[in-house]
Amino acid sequence: MQNKTGNKIKLGLFVSITVLIFIVGIYFIGQKQQLFNRTFHISGIFKDISGLQIGNNVRYSGINVGIVEDIEQVTDSTVKVDMQIDEKTRKFMKKDVRAIIGSDGLMGNKIMVIMPGTISKTEISDNDVIQTTQPVSLDDILVKVKITSDHMADITGNLSTITQNVSEGKGTIGKLLMDSTMAKNVGQAMVNIKQGAGGFKQNMDAAGHSFLLKGFLKKKDKDKKKDTK
């Protein structure tokens, strides 16, 4: 009889502990889905939600503060996303917060990111419709990459033509770099400039000894000495 009671107690303990584990598990999963917290609701209108799903996390300042509660197609080009947010974060959220759809890492789920608003603005209210920023889709990025690569192709084509012309000695730069006559002419021009500069110096020395410029040069010397003092 005592053994029977002992067995019943053991069974009762085993079942109770297991049920407790189950309830704790359910509580933690439910808490993640804001089931046991007080919440408020906000929504945002998007053109494209990029695969966002009901149940995806809502992040504010990098913290998970809620979940996407509902997604509804309003018109042919607008989708309304309802969010359930933890009441505790309401005091930090202002009327001008902005929602953007992001991604949790490179391979992660889509998330709703709420960007902080201006501190001076009033606190957000229940059922407010917040401003949104359209997410940059991978398709948009690919279109831009294609345009950039087309431009790059044009630029490299032009560069190729220019370098070909230069190597063939066409145009001013081509002649400058490739034409030997031009180089000789430039060399000769430099010799002429050097000779001209020597002659000019002699002329200036001669002018310094002339009575017409003597007074002017003496005055200049005096001013120079005053400045040094």
């Binding site: 189950f22 598990g25 359910i26 933690f28 999963i29 439910g30 993640k32 889905q33 149940g55």
Partner: peptide, 17 residues
């Protein structure tokens, strides 16, 4: 365990039980 519960959903637990 935070990561475990973060990845689990009611739709994972209830049908399995």
């Amino acid at each position: 365990f935070l990561k475990v519960f973060e990845s689990l959903d009611f739709s994972d637990v209830f049908p399995a039980v």
